[in-house]
């Protein structure tokens, strides 16, 4: 089964939520906190890009017979 290289949207959002939770609640030292923050910004940007790229029409609709070939 083909795996996509980038993490799927769901995992992105989960990781983002985890990062925010940790930054708000845990007593991290500055170094760790900054690293997490940077990762959070990255993930946020990625997620927003994916939403923006989504097209308004369902172009890639496949019929099962097409794929059977």
């Amino acid at each position: 089964m083909p795996e996509s290289e980038a993490p799927e949207f769901g995992r992105l959002v989960e990781r983002l939520e985890e990062i925010v939770r940790r930054l708000e609640a845990e007593d991290l030292d500055l170094d760790e906190a900054l690293k997490l923050f940077e990762e959070g910004v990255e993930r946020l940007r990625d997620a927003r890009q994916r939403l923006a790229r989504a097209e308004a029409t369902v172009k890639k609709v496949l019929r099962v017979e097409d794929l059977d070939r």
Binding site: R63, V64, E65
Partner: peptide, 16 residues
Amino acid sequence: VGRRWPPPLAELLLVP
């Protein structure tokens, strides 16, 4: 689906 969660977010597959 096209309005709410279209490609590349999700792919729709018709099984006739």
